[in-house]
């Protein structure tokens, strides 16, 4: 089994975390170290808390009324729930990609330039450099370089999702959260996204929620299995998929429940 500590530096450290939607507890005593510049997959049946967990990592749950969190979430040794934390800065550092691609109804260029602009980048050439490098990183450049001024809504679903990835990269995050980024895409677009994830992990820490077990196997280095709000098992994906330690993990990945 891969020793996660020795394998790479810890980027996200979660300690004794409990999370509540009003009176309902959604996450129970989560302890997890997510390694830097690796892909970590979060798997588990619907309602197991994996998406809730993902959203605690850039405080996206803050926008839901009545939520409450206990415990610690440290990114680069800083507690992101510290009252001094600047949430805007946090979300700049921890980008997010959603299940359904959600480009702004603007041009391809403006979609990617949006983030850098609100963070104060005004220089046209500089913006162009950012747009180009992000589109190259998200493997979309060759397909759109001649129509950057066209509306992003005219792109295909797979292209839109890669545009959203480019947009997330434009504000130069360290961590990219992905909530089922390929579940609405056809196999070919899915493959592109998966190849892309594999490229991106050279520069970013990627945490991906997926319902598709095969996808978790294909793209991730480490896998965390959640069940009923608890982290049941965390380990190298190879180990989880060939010899899981917990019976619940085994039952889930072999398709007996979930």
């Amino acid at each position: 089994m891969v020793d996660i500590q020795a394998d790479s530096k810890v980027k996200v450290h979660v300690e004794n975390m409990n999370f509540y939607y009003g009176p309902v507890q959604a996450l129970f005593d989560i302890n997890l170290d997510i390694p830097e510049k690796k892909v970590t997959a979060l798997i588990g049946p619907s309602g197991c808390g994996k998406s809730t967990f993902l959203r605690t990592l850039n405080r996206m749950n803050d926008i839901i009324d009545g939520t409450r969190i206990e415990g610690k979430v440290m990114i680069d040794d800083k507690d992101i729930y510290d009252p001094m934390t600047d949430v805007v800065e946090l979300r700049k550092k921890v980008g997010m990609i959603f299940q359904k691609s959600n480009p702004f109804p603007k041009s391809i260029f403006d979609n990617i330039a949006y983030g850098p602009r609100i963070h104060g980048v005004k220089d046209k050439n500089k913006l162009m450099d950012i747009v180009e490098s992000c589109l190259i990183k998200s493997a979309l450049w060759d397909e759109v370089k001649d129509r950057l001024e066209k509306n992003a809504m005219g792109l295909s679903g797979g292209q839109q999702q890669r545009l959203c990835i480019a947009r997330a990269l434009a504000i130069n995050p360290d961590v990219v959260l992905m909530d089922e980024p390929a579940s609405a895409l056809d196999p070919k677009s899915t493959l592109k996204i998966e190849d892309l994830i594999n490229e991106l992990k050279k520069d970013y820490t990627i945490i991906i929620v997926t319902h598709n077990m095969q996808q978790a196997g294909r793209v991730s280095d480490h896998t965390a299995f959640f069940y009923e709000g608890r982290l049941i098992e965390f380990g190298a994906t190879e180990q989880i998929f060939t010899k899981p330690n917990q019976k619940q993990t085994e039952d889930y990945i072999t398709g007996r429940f979930g």
């Binding site: 095969q214 294909r218 190879e238 998929f241 060939t242």
Partner: peptide, 9 residues
């Protein structure tokens, strides 16, 4: 081999 079979089918 086992890894490839389990992870990539």
């Amino acid at each position: 081999c086992l890894k490839i079979l389990a992870l990539y089918q």
